[in-house]
Design a protein around this nucleic acid. Sequence first.
DNA 1: GTCCTTGCAAATGCTTTGCACGCTG
DNA 2: CAGCGTGCAAAGCATTTGCAAGGAC
Lengths: 140, 140
Amino acid sequence: MTAVKFDKKMLKKRGGRLTSQRSLVFDIISKGGGHLDAAEIYAKAWRRMPGISLSTVYRAIGKFKELGLVEECHLCQEHHHYEALQNGSHFHLVCLGCGAVIEFEFPLVKRIRDEVDKARRFNIVNAEVNLSGYCSRCRG
Amino acid sequence: MTAVKFDKKMLKKRGGRLTSQRSLVFDIISKGGGHLDAAEIYAKAWRRMPGISLSTVYRAIGKFKELGLVEECHLCQEHHHYEALQNGSHFHLVCLGCGAVIEFEFPLVKRIRDEVDKARRFNIVNAEVNLSGYCSRCRG
DNA sequence: GTCCTTGCAAATGCTTTGCACGCTG
DNA sequence: CAGCGTGCAAAGCATTTGCAAGGAC
């Protein structure tokens, strides 16, 4: 997990401007290893650039997402969704085109659980698998 | 995906009371197949019980979660977290005890992608796998 | 010089909480 | 009848937006 050097080219693609704030935010996200939320990024940013605004952090993140440099861990849903616990676990396949959600079960998921359990000495309680992409109708 | 009959016993375990609002909310969640958010549940509930309060919906959901009857799809994190896209995908193993996050790569994940891709005629763009449980230190 | 970015403050949207009344057990 | 659950309104957070001033190109 090495930090990615923030590069002018990365922004220029779609006309973004290279500012010190953006470099800073990108550097923090890049070194954060994927576990930082906006407030944490903001806190780290403030230490290196006192006075930086929280909205600037959000806007930088938004820009990076737009450019495909950064992604949210929980990509497919905006807010919480709930489901009743019934017959075992199933997984979600979300179409980025039409928003359709398909549920599926997949034996390999159990194998992943088992093997991670063994390999990492980790007692797995919950497994969540979310796939997103384009369904047959929407691709093209 | 059949609806689960809401049962008095399900609530009594920890002293909850059986009310018409709770039955209604549970029924909606149960029939929703896991893709309803709070607002959608509220809307459906209002149609069958005009005047029901949104806070009641939230409190019912909270109770069901507490009783283990319902779970949020995005269990492990409260709000969005961001990560830089770099060398291919990795996955997350979150300890429910100490909060540690372990990243791992796993070849089976690629197999799942491929097979779902084929089986469902779905063009997969992003795969996300989140496992949670207890690490060797925290279990016991 | 143009117009994209920033900082600030206010607004928005989802979720939670305080309080008095009503209903379950 | 005791105490939990409800509805309402207000509070809390995270995130977004409008606007005037500042900086990149």
